[in-house]
Design a protein around this nucleic acid. Structure first.
Ligand SMILES: [Zn+2]
Ligand SMILES: [Zn+2]
Ligand SMILES: [Zn+2]
Ligand SMILES: [Zn+2]
Lengths: 162, 162
DNA sequence: CCCATCATGTAATAACATAACAATATTGAA
DNA sequence: TTCAATATTGTTATGTTATTACATGATGGG
């Protein structure tokens, strides 16, 4: 069964940021870790986009808001958010994107549009994924899977035709 | 059907480098492009390993052999080899590995051991891959797929147990 | 020969990421 | 409360990966 990725269709953006931050905050308290102001702000910055931002982009925006100006400020916040599953790193882009399916345990797969730079996240079942099957046949124990596809999104394809 | 990745078992290494270079050379002539000395040497360097090398590692070895010392020397050779399918970039590692299945058109999937750093390449059918299915359901046109799994290879798992 | 194309080389810089250390805040015993 | 351990934020400096720009030399067709 193939999950239905989101990200290509328009949607009401105003509340999803607040909701996601609130959910993250709750999850952090349950886990006994702190969603501090910088970390929260970094998450908000990524949630405001449906594309991946580089660490230095995030850093610049954090600095505008009065936080530090040096790379570790951004990298530490992003490390925290990534470690706790609120943010994913897109290896192909050396950039970060807010998780579109927070809460659930998942192995994310990404569709990256090279035209409009939107990044859509699809959920996958780790066990029935291709990598999982390969790992099974070879006895390889997977720690982390990177599944990223580059190409042209439906919106941009439509524009090309027009 | 899941292809059987290689790379975890020992094998005779002496001839596979020459064979692969010869095959690449032939393919280049057919395509009307040149496998020049630097490019050939870069390919050999990668073929001598079953792990990924960073561009600067390749650069250092090229320089030892009398080629230029500046980054573009390595990046250009690697770009050429990647473009023509003789080498793949491992995004997770920002590093390059010789293709283990040259000749055939394929969407490579990689298993990266975080212990011994071996990188195994499995062939996948683009169409029946997870990414392919996701793309189909969403109308996304895939240009390139990045499929990389990090974990522990069977050899290293065996050592842990011992 | 002349010109276009490709290939190689260098210098300079951009982009991405971490190490090391100082200062402050939080937490949780004693 | 007091104190020590831990966590957080900040800075400086450095390391690592990658590209831009430009000069030089080779190749090949007209
Ligand atoms: Zn996610
Ligand atoms: Zn697009
Ligand atoms: Zn390959
Ligand atoms: Zn291993």
């Amino acid at each position: 069964m193939i999950p239905n990725p989101i990200g290509f269709e328009k949607h009401d953006h105003s509340h999803c940021v607040q909701d996601a931050v609130a959910a993250a905050d709750k999850k952090c308290r349950n886990a006994g870790v702190q969603l501090t102001p910088v970390r929260k702000r970094a998450l908000e910055i990524l949630l405001e986009e449906h594309r991946a931002l580089g660490a230095y982009d995030v850093l610049a925006r954090l600095n505008e808001d009065g936080y530090g100006s040096q790379p570790p400020v951004a990298y530490r916040a992003l490390d925290f958010l990534t470690k706790h599953g609120f943010v994913h790193k897109i290896e192909r882009l050396n950039a970060f994107v807010a998780c579109a399916h927070p809460g659930e345990r998942h192995t994310p797969a990404f569709l990256i549009c090279t035209e409009c730079h939107v990044v859509a996240e699809a959920e996958t079942e780790h066990s029935d994924s291709l990598m999982g099957q390969i790992a099974e046949t070879t006895g390889f124990r997977i720690t982390r899977a990177v599944l990223e596809a580059e190409g042209i999104c439906p919106n941009c394809l439509a524009k090309e035709t027009a």
